[in-house]
Simulated scan of single mutants.
Amino acid sequence: LRFDILIEGCLFVEVKATESVQPIHKAQLLTYMKLLDIPIGLIINFNVLKLTDGVSRLMLPGANQA
Rank of each mutant, 00 (worst) to 15 (best):
L1W: 07
R2Y: 09
R2W: 08
F3L: 07
F3Q: 02
F3E: 04
F3M: 11
D4L: 08
I5Y: 06
I5T: 03
I5Q: 02
I5K: 01
L6F: 04
I7K: 09
I7V: 15
E8I: 07
G9P: 00
G9Q: 04
G9Y: 01
G9L: 03
G9S: 02
C10M: 09
F12K: 05
F12P: 01
F12D: 04
V13A: 06
E14V: 02
E14M: 09
V15L: 15
V15T: 03
V15E: 05
V15P: 03
K16C: 11
K16F: 11
A17D: 07
A17H: 15
A17N: 15
A17E: 07
T18P: 00
T18D: 08
E19F: 07
E19H: 13
E19R: 13
S20E: 14
S20Q: 14
V21L: 14
V21D: 08
V21K: 06
Q22R: 15
Q22Y: 13
Q22G: 03
Q22I: 13
P23S: 10
P23W: 09
I24A: 15
I24S: 15
I24D: 10
H25E: 12
K26T: 12
A27L: 11
A27E: 12
A27R: 14
Q28M: 06
Q28W: 05
Q28E: 11
L29F: 08
L29Q: 09
L30S: 10
T31M: 11
Y32G: 02
Y32F: 06
Y32D: 02
Y32K: 07
M33I: 00
K34E: 14
K34Q: 07
K34D: 08
L36E: 09
L36G: 00
D37I: 04
I38N: 04
I40N: 07
I40Q: 05
I40F: 11
G41K: 10
L42S: 00
L42M: 01
L42I: 02
I44Y: 05
I44P: 02
N45Y: 05
N45V: 03
N45S: 10
F46R: 06
V48W: 00
L49F: 07
L49M: 06
L49Y: 06
K50L: 13
K50A: 13
L51E: 07
L51G: 07
L51W: 04
L51D: 06
T52Y: 07
T52D: 12
T52W: 04
T52N: 11
T52C: 05
D53K: 01
D53E: 03
D53F: 02
G54Y: 01
V55G: 01
V55R: 01
S56I: 12
S56G: 01
R57L: 01
L58N: 11
L58C: 08
M59V: 12
M59D: 12
P61D: 12
A63E: 12
A63H: 11
N64S: 10
N64Q: 14
N64K: 15
N64D: 09
Q65T: 13
Q65R: 14
Q65M: 12
Q65I: 08
A66M: 10
A66N: 13
A66Q: 15
